[in-house]
Design a protein around this nucleic acid. Structure first.
Lengths: 251, 251
DNA sequence: CGCGTGCGTTGACGCAGATCAACGCAGAAA
DNA sequence: TTTCTGCGTTGATCTGCGTCAACGCACGCG
């Protein structure tokens, strides 16, 4: 049980005897498709490591050699234009997978917002895993479908909502844990206080706005008593109903 | 921006002895995952329909009972806000599948742009098919991954590109068949003349603009000799390089 | 300590694209 | 034929958000 084999090229050695079995993110992640008795095989292919806040670990255009699974912390995923304009396409928290692309190269970049832990799988090894565990493929399809639904919702936001509506939508989505937590992990009640680990610049690039507009809009929501802003990275929702009607385009 | 009108659907019986084997869309579609000898089983579950131009066949919020596969023609997929603002999230041509949602209800609406033919599968039957043909599930995952990449590209467009850049991106994507044809069906050469079966309103709702801006921007691209507009629904690309640099955000 | 640097906020101003309005044209109906 | 209706184009004007600029504050460092 405590036997320990040396492994090839690992960023960080895996000291735990059974890391996947004790992974806090497993219930949320695609790894839950693997039964307990097969976890050792999963663990043998998973290379866990830590990424510090601000570090980028996927570059758009690089060969798509790895598949990642976030176990803690938060990443931002983004696309860039040559002149530096950036669109953040999503935030990935514990349980999220990254790098599903069919293409030979990554179509997006990824960078840690907070210090995070992720598991890396080489794509060939993932392929083997998928063949041996059809349930894993099913879970991936399910997860991809959910991502697609979220992406369409975001297109509606970017294409048709005003700045106020975008911020309201964003805050509510955060409150519902739709952004940082994996799909399927629904909370019974909605937290009124939400944390914003990302900067104003990140929020702006996620919502298709500028930092000034984000700041002004939040200030206005505060003066209208819809929210409180105890600190820049912490927001309390004071009038969830008003925010919801804003977010859905009414008013 | 337009308000949305729902219309009924035309149903049609399946008269052909072996429809899937003779389906022109099969090479492009997820159905290509099914081997020839198993096509009869696929055909037994597929209900082919014709849908007339302008008819809606999926309503957002309705129970997600069916899965669809487009065999010819074009559909637009969209999301609505209560006040009628609309965002078209994509156009689905031959080979495209629709209705993958994990959710109990559809998260988007769909309407025929041109008269189209589609195959309907009930979700329970699709589930059986997926269990019997793992390759089908793999193809679905592949297709969903490609959709996701396209969705991220569209988020970049909606969040960060100017009207000119959006139109240039749209025209080039049409020319490359990225919009109407399924992923993986790449043309060797790029067609210079492209058809626009959708209205200006549809283009505007796809690009997050108004019809006036679409019209003006196309006119400007014409006066700058980047395109020609023989008829409103037909456009010739005269300077692909200039359009490409526009679309990628240079200039 | 003073100084710099990064981040967020606020104000003044400008502009890309939205809004409001008019018109041309083709196809359908009478 | 005339009239109507839907679609696209064009012009005049407006405005939400971007741009440019200044400033406050917290934090780290010499």
């Amino acid at each position: 049980m405590t036997t320990f084999r040396a492994r090839p090229v690992v960023v960080e050695m895996n000291h735990l005897p059974d890391p996947c079995a004790h992974c806090g993110a497993r219930p949320f992640s695609v790894c839950s498709a693997i039964e307990d008795q097969d976890l050792a095989r999963l663990a043998a292919l998973a290379h866990p490591f830590t990424i510090e806040a601000g570090r980028s670990f996927i570059d758009e255009g690089d060969p798509a050699e790895n598949f990642y699974n976030v176990t803690s912390g938060t990443a931002k995923l983004f696309k860039l234009l040559p002149d530096g304009r950036r669109q953040i396409t999503g935030f990935a928290g514990a349980g999220h997978f990254l790098g599903l692309a069919v293409s030979r190269t990554y179509s997006f970049g990824a960078e840690a917002v907070e210090t995070m832990r992720i598991c890396r799988f080489s794509r060939p090894k993932l392929r083997v895993l998928l063949e041996d565990f059809p349930a894993l493929e099913r879970r991936l399809l399910e997860a991809a479908s959910n991502e697609l639904v979220a992406a369409q919702e975001q297109m509606l936001l970017l294409g048709r909502k005003t700045a106020r509506e975008r911020l309201a939508s964003f805050l509510l989505a955060r409150a519902e844990g739709q952004i940082m937590l994996p799909a399927g992990c629904s909370h019974a009640g909605r937290a009124e206080a939400i944390s914003l680990p990302m900067t104003r610049t990140d929020i702006a690039d996620y919502l298709g706005l500028t930092i000034e507009t984000v700041s002004r809009t939040l200030t206005r929501l505060r003066t209208e008593r819809l929210i409180e802003i105890p600190t820049p990275s912490e927001i309390v929702l004071r009038d969830v109903h008003a925010l919801e009607s804003l977010a859905s385009g009414l008013n």
